[in-house]
Amino acid sequence: MPPAAPRPNRQSLNLQVGEWGEQLVCQWLTQQQWHILDRRWHCRWGEIDIIARSSASTPTPHINANRLAFVEVKTRQAQNWDADGLLAITQSKQQKLWKTAQIYLGKHPELAELFCQFDVALVQCNWISQPPNTVDIHDELQETAIDIKQPFHVGGYQFILLDYIESAFTL
């Protein structure tokens, strides 16, 4: 019998859980008629978790079809210290995201005329059981409808998209 694969260390597990939280938000955004342009886009100023463009074919009174969202995803366990990640979006963090977005738009001038917004997605992740060695959340999410405040189970964890805050801050 082959030896069992080693369990990931705490840091790599936290990175994986963070990536799963981002993937959950990407799936939800796609279901809301957004097109994901980039994930984990980074430059010297920082990183933007998700960059998405609205893809609604016909604008409605509350949806501008020409929007670009720079999305910060915060994945936290229940009963955390920072209001599910909301308190981590400090003035300093907002300025870094703004500078990073400016550089992104400089590299993608075709998007510079779109209405830009900074959104925040709050995801809760709770450990339920021992996670398997490998889990492909992409396969798990393929057929799943994601709703705000509805649990989604993957790899021994329960994820909940607690809130999606459009235009969470402006500079």
Rank of each mutant, 00 (worst) to 15 (best):
T58L: 08
T58K: 07
P59I: 10
P59E: 15
P59G: 15
T60G: 08
T60E: 10
P61N: 09
H62G: 08
I63V: 12
I63E: 09
I63G: 04
I63Y: 03
I63W: 02
N64P: 07
A65F: 06
A65G: 14
A65D: 14
A65V: 13
N66H: 14
N66V: 12
R67I: 09
R67W: 05
L68D: 06
L68C: 04
L68A: 05
L68S: 06
A69C: 03
A69T: 06
F70C: 02
F70M: 06
V71N: 11
V71A: 10
V71W: 07
V71Q: 07
E72S: 15
V73I: 10
V73K: 00
V73D: 00
K74P: 03
K74D: 10
K74V: 09
K74Y: 06
T75A: 12
T75Q: 08
T75F: 07
R76G: 02
R76M: 07
Q77S: 15
Q77F: 09
Q77E: 15
Q79W: 09
N80G: 14
N80F: 03
N80Q: 12
W81V: 15
W81R: 15
D82E: 13
D82G: 09
A83E: 14
D84R: 08
D84P: 01
G85M: 00
G85P: 00
G85I: 00
G85Y: 00
L86W: 11
L86V: 10
L86R: 12
L87C: 14
I89Y: 00
T90N: 02
T90V: 01
Q91P: 06
Q91V: 10
Q91F: 05
S92N: 14
S92I: 11
K93C: 02
Q94T: 04
Q95M: 04
Q95C: 03
Q95W: 02
Q95H: 04
K96G: 03
K96E: 15
L97A: 05
L97T: 06
L97W: 00
L97K: 01
W98Q: 13
W98K: 11
W98P: 01
W98L: 14
W98E: 14
K99I: 05
K99Y: 05
K99M: 04
T100L: 04
T100F: 02
A101L: 08
Q102T: 04
Q102G: 08
Q102H: 03
I103Q: 03
I103H: 03
I103K: 02
Y104I: 10
Y104M: 10
Y104W: 12
L105A: 02
L105T: 05
L105C: 05
L105Q: 03
G106M: 05
K107M: 09
K107Y: 03
K107P: 01
K107E: 12
H108W: 08
H108K: 14
E110T: 07
E110C: 03
E110I: 04
E110A: 09
E110G: 05
E110D: 07
E110V: 06
